[in-house]
Amino acid sequence: MFEARLLKSGQLKKILEAIKELLKEATFDCSDSGIQLQAMDDAHVSLVSMCLKSTGFDKFRCDRNLSMGINLESMVKIMKCCSNDDIMTIKAQDNADTLTIMFETKNQEKMSDYEMKLMNLDQEHLGIPETNYSCIIKMPSSEFARICRDLSQFGDSLVIACTKEGVKFSTSGDIGSANVKLSQTSTFDKEEEGVTIEMTQAVCLTFACRYLNLFCKATPLSTQVILSMSGDVPLVVEYQIEELGCIRYYLAPKIEE
């Protein structure tokens, strides 16, 4: 028996919005520690890794490890049927081929339930090597989204260059070029408004704007984003979900021909 109760269904809504354009379907691996998802997009250019801790749920029960193959488009349809502050419960029997999703309003005057068919997905688990990243940049997630959106007007590729002075985002294309430089914030009122850089070695890598913009769909989940980079390895774009867990996106860099 698997059962998880979330006080704000809006959180799961935002999570699905953050992954549905990269993945059509995904396996949700449930265990007593929580729910995990790891999947690459069809082109094997990016990977989504999500972890929701059991302690982040109002109630969480998972008697036996359970892998649920979910069509994300179907789940998005169901999530459209609830309000952000509805309480939701997801439930499945062991070896079930369906998942039940229930919503209740806070005053419990409206209850609804939806049953969704589960899928058998061939899933490959990837080993992601432990990496000591040369640069770790923490910045407001809205600022990162703004930069990706603005610069993708000019070119398909975004160069991210991190030095101890700051981080520079650059692109160029038919109409010209664009650069945005952010320096480390010296003073800030709130931690989430600052830009901080931990750097052991300068790094400069090129990434596809299209994917970065898709990762930015996670912006509503977190005020901060963490970018981790090392030479010639995938970029990690991480959004912490308050009290619940995190979503990490990995993106293979573009390579000089």
Binding site: M40, A43, H44, V45, S46, L47, E124, H125, L126, G127, I128, P129, S157, T206, A208, V233, P234, Y250, A252, P253, K254, I255, E256, E257
Partner: peptide
Amino acid sequence: GTTQGRLDSFFTVI
């Protein structure tokens, strides 16, 4: 020019 890398060359299937 640049070409898009793939993750398969970085991560291994467990």
